[in-house]
Structures are given as structure tokens and as C-alpha cells.
Simulated assay, not measured.
Amino acid sequence: MGIINGAEFAPTSTYLDTAKCGLLPARAVEAVQRLAASNGAGGGAGDFGIVEAARESFARIVGVPGARVATGGSVAVHCGLIAAAQQPGAEVLFAEGDFSSIINPFVVRGDLKIRYAPLDELAEAVRPTTALVAWSAVQSADGRLADDTAVREAAAAHGARTLNDSTQAAGWLPFDASLYDYTVTGAFKWLLCPRGTSFLTVSEEAQESLVPLHAGWMASADSWNSTYGPLSELAPGARRYDEPPAFLAYHGAAQSLAYIEETSIAAVHAHDTALAARYRAGLAALGHEPVPGESAIVSVPGLADREPGLRRAGIITSARAGHLRVSFHLYNTEADVDRILDVLSGRTLARRAAGH
């Protein structure tokens, strides 16, 4: 069984693709619709208080004070701020094959020393010349979990800062953002927020390391009295790095994040990983070898070509890096696991052919 309130979700397919995009709770959809409907009626511009509620909710989920969270629209923009702060010639270390949004902002500068290492060798690859280590807690392509502790310890031993992308982790995997100098999180996946919702966390120690290059009037300590001319003082904490809010997205996000808090990460983690374990066992029985681990994302090398057929059968998955990628979240059930296994085994087609 799922752990959802049935009133919040009503998927019209067997949806196993949260690693691509999460489903919106009904309350989030309604919040977006309310704001859109109020356009021109005095309230359609959006509510900054709701943006603050989303900030504080996310902060609680990842274990940091709200003052350490910046709101924005994309991981790439957050990473662009961090990339801009690196000194020319600085060495930045990435995990091989990690998601491009955390890599490209550094690569396109053209004056940084970029290095890559296999995910399971990332800690060993940190060296005294490394200025920053950037990696994803959970790999997008195949669901592998990084040894975050080992990488953090290696970075600390060599004086390197850390940037962790928790986009594929926050929402199902217990994640403590306070352990990193910077974290970035696209919230439209496991946190079930609308696209256009993304969060940056900055540790107190790293607070002055970034320049708020896209600072608008909201980067000021006194925003409403700083709408014209240059600001006199930056906002305290990470709010100085805020992007202007996409209100429709954030009105929905505040509701989605509240729903995740109500459900609890511990409950979601237990549920998601139990379904993933059931699927892995079923795959093994069919003779398939998924990428090993205990992730809510399960990828099978060499089965990417099955994605179109699964979609025709009403089962939504993704093909990534030659893998068939399946991801389980709080709205999925054991019946969803059994259905995809049936289709992959050919049993569903056999029953149809027999007239059942």
C-alpha cells in the first residue's frame, strides 16, 4: 500500500518517474490555481510571506536555520553563483558522469582546473590543491548513493569546500544540509514542488564566500525601502542570494513542502526503499541485474529500450545513460511494482494473447 492521503494524488498511470519530476499534491495545484485566479483582483502578484513559509519548511526538512536558505528557480543558477566565486585557476573536483547542471557553470568559466573521479573514488581523489568538491548525494543516472561522509572528511582534511546536490535525495533520503558549505536542491522531484522551485543553502562559514551577482531590491536588508537606487546594506544570511520568486511555483511549493513534513522523511524513506527492494528482488528473479544499492531509484543497465513499451502499457519510467530508470515515491504501491515486473517479464502480453 502507499502512504498517501488518497485526496492528494490521483495518478492516471503507473507513475514510476519521480526522479524526473514529482507529482503535485492536490493542495499545491489548488494553491497555484487560487493565485492565478486572483490575477487582477489585488492579490495576483503573489505573497512574499508564502515564499518565506516555503523557505522555512525546506530548512526544517534539511536541518538548517531558515537564514541559511536562499530561494531560486534552478540548480544551475545557484551553481553559477558558486562557480563565479572561485579564484582563477582553482581546482574543482567532480564525480564522473554527475548531472550537468552542477558541472557546466564551472566548466564554461574556462579558467578553472576541472578534475573528475569515479564516484566511489571521489574521496581518495581530493588533494591539497583542491578548492571545491562538488557531487550529488544520489546519482541521477542510476540512483547510486555517494559516500558523503568520506568525501566530507577528505575535503576537510585538505581544506576544500563542499558542494552537495541533494536534488535526487531531499524528500526521500534523510539529508542534513548543515554538513556542507553549499547545497543545491531542485525541489520539483522528490519534494513534489512545481518546476521553478530550487533552494541553495550556505553555511555560516561560507557566508561571505559568494557575491550576490543577481542582486535585486530583495537582496537588501530593508527591501521595501530599497526599491530605487543602490542598496545600502545586504540582507543578512542567505536571503541576499535569493532570486526574484516565481510566485506561482512558490505558492504551490509551500503546500508541497508542508505535505512532506506532515508525512515525515522517515516514513517516506521506509516506504520508498521497501518498494525499491521488492522491485530489485523481482528483477533478479527475471534474470536482470540492477545497479546495486538501497536507493529509491533503481536502474537496469541495457534495458533503456524497454521504456517506450512500458509507456504504451501506461507505466511511466525514464531511459537514462543506457539504463531503464525506475523511481518509487510515496504515491506508489506494491501493485505498481508488480505491474512493471509483469510487463518486463512478458506475462501481461501472454495473458492478453490468451484472451484473459
Rank of each mutant, 00 (worst) to 15 (best):
M1Q: 12
I3V: 09
I3L: 05
N5Y: 07
P11N: 03
S13M: 14
Y15W: 13
D17L: 13
K20D: 13
K20W: 14
L23Y: 07
A31T: 00
G43Y: 15
F48S: 11
A54L: 14
A59S: 14
R60F: 11
V64F: 09
V69E: 03
V69R: 02
T71C: 14
G72F: 06
G73Q: 10
H78E: 05
G80W: 03
L81C: 00
G89Y: 09
G89K: 06
E91K: 15
V92Q: 02
L93C: 04
A95R: 02
F99W: 15
G110P: 12
A117D: 04
P118A: 08
A125I: 08
R127C: 15
T129P: 06
T129E: 15
T130V: 04
A134S: 06
A137S: 08
G143V: 06
L145F: 14
R152N: 11
A155Y: 06
A157D: 10
A160F: 09
S166L: 14
A170V: 09
Y180T: 01
T185W: 08
K189G: 06
C193K: 07
G196A: 10
T201R: 07
T201W: 14
V202K: 06
A206E: 09
E208A: 15
G216N: 14
W217I: 00
A221E: 14
D222G: 04
D222L: 07
S223N: 13
S223A: 15
N225C: 09
N225G: 13
G229V: 04
L231A: 09
L231S: 07
S232E: 14
S232I: 03
E233W: 08
A235T: 00
P236D: 15
G237S: 09
A238I: 02
F247Y: 14
A249H: 07
Y250H: 01
A253S: 03
A254K: 01
Y259Q: 04
E262S: 12
A267M: 11
V268G: 01
T273Q: 02
A276R: 00
A285S: 12
A285V: 04
V291S: 02
E294F: 08
L310V: 01
R311K: 12
A313E: 10
T317R: 03
T317H: 05
A319D: 10
R320E: 11
A321C: 13
F328I: 01
F328T: 00
V337I: 04
L344Y: 01
R351F: 12
G355L: 05
